[in-house]
Design a protein around this nucleic acid. Sequence first.
DNA 1: TTGACATATTCCTATATGAGCATATATTGA
DNA 2: TCAATATATGCTCATATAGGAATATGTCAA
Lengths: 111, 111
Amino acid sequence: MARAATTSDAFNAIAEPRRRYILNYLAMQERSVSEIVDAMEMEQSSVSKHLKVLKDVGLVAARREGRQMLYKVNAMAIRPLHEWTSTFERLWKHQLLRVKERAEARNQDKQ
Amino acid sequence: MARAATTSDAFNAIAEPRRRYILNYLAMQERSVSEIVDAMEMEQSSVSKHLKVLKDVGLVAARREGRQMLYKVNAMAIRPLHEWTSTFERLWKHQLLRVKERAEARNQDKQ
DNA sequence: TTGACATATTCCTATATGAGCATATATTGA
DNA sequence: TCAATATATGCTCATATAGGAATATGTCAA
């Protein structure tokens, strides 16, 4: 079996750095395709394809305005990713705490 | 150009559902490969390969104990993912607020 | 209706899987 | 040293890209 489709879920969709870049760019405000093309240094066809992937998994929404298509982030679709990573938050905080404790112990030794 | 390597970064590594499953399983405690194989319904070779990917991007750490290899999550490597998703938190909170406001407006109309 | 602009889609190619199976490597105990 | 246990790696195949170029589709203005 090959790798899962990029459109299978948000996790796959954001695996591509350029798609994360697009999402970051759209986080500021709604943008047309050509604005995105200008912001990234990419072919228009590539940008459109990435936008399609993002749209298929619900990470962006689009609306037509005249000849342009305006895309914006659908932040709600990012929530599941945030929640999944949050389940590990307790672990890295614990890890950071231990790092800090060791540092303090070293300082104690010096005195 | 083909898709980025799964080992290119944590984002690509966690795109695979089975690897997220492994991380979830390891979040509870350190486990041997055979324990993971039993927990997931997968071939041992597949599990070892997924573990290699996770290890290459630093998402897990391994140590040998006799004939076994014990794997554990390196939660710190998940932090960048958490932080990236956090940049959109403001947006979805705003979105949720608007949903709530509309619901309240509808209730007002009924009265 | 027609030309121009803005996007989307198709075609082609090189590449990277992920699964299963077979085999190699590492470690322990007799 | 040798057999058994625990993992890792190599090989093959089917599949899914991601980018570039060319082309199709959609929309507006005259």
